[in-house]
Design a protein around this nucleic acid. Sequence first.
DNA 1: GTAAAAGTGGGGAAAAGTGGGGTAAAATCT
DNA 2: AGATTTTACCCCACTTTTCCCCACTTTTAC
Lengths: 143, 143
Amino acid sequence: MFLGTYQNKIDDKNRMAVPAKFRDQLGGKCMLTKGFDECLYIYTMEDFEVMAAKIAALPQSDADFREFIRDFFGNSELCELDGQGRIKIPQNLRDYAHITKDLVTTGAMNKVEIWSAETKADFDLAKKMKDSKFTDKLREFSI
Amino acid sequence: MFLGTYQNKIDDKNRMAVPAKFRDQLGGKCMLTKGFDECLYIYTMEDFEVMAAKIAALPQSDADFREFIRDFFGNSELCELDGQGRIKIPQNLRDYAHITKDLVTTGAMNKVEIWSAETKADFDLAKKMKDSKFTDKLREFSI
DNA sequence: GTAAAAGTGGGGAAAAGTGGGGTAAAATCT
DNA sequence: AGATTTTACCCCACTTTTCCCCACTTTTAC
């Protein structure tokens, strides 16, 4: 399970250090994809395979599905971690997540989310506005 | 069951000694999470698993649920107690609970609450103000 | 009062994070 | 096709952070 929040940077060569806590679970390589909410997702190979199989099975006769399939696979990338535990983030994904320099990396159960620090800050602020709803939801699941 | 209230400190290396009374029940490690009311919770591994399993089952297609999952897992941390029975509190959780130096640690049945001493004092005062009799009496003498 | 346990502080080795050089491969241009 | 430029990738170096361990102080228990 991926847990916790980390600050990190992308360098001039578009490399990002994967937080050390996540590396063992990924085992040297991972799938980097476009996430919801203007962030990127890192999946383990196994989880990605499961998703990919489901998505590939969607009926290609439907135009919406075709677009979705194109979007999903076109914005997925197999990333191998280098000797320092870093992955390279390609331009199309950097653009999508507005990534320039400072990042926030968050464990979200079965995936890791990569955010531009600025985008995340804006998003969190917006979230705060509707925070009471949130707390109520948390209460439902608390023990 | 976790019982009792303890004063303690966080040191310059962001470590907090878990009150000795709680250690046996935690068994060397615990889950540290964001709580309600600007405090942190310590759960046993077992209790956390129960909550996590429920939350993991939420549909990721719903934006609110995605935020919730991100918030919950991103602000959870597996903490191993060091040789002195201390855990490290990460920055995101310190920030959330306004933790700088002095802490109050309270057993709350199935979880342990960690408060910044100042935040707890403010919270207790605010609670006192809400006590109707007290407030009414205060009104008589207020100017 | 004494011994044991709990709490607190800090040194130092190891790991993680970060930046950059150099070479090979790929792409582009003429 | 050959030459030139760009990109990728492996490796090394430096800085920062983490974590293990030891030592001292304070509290608790008998």
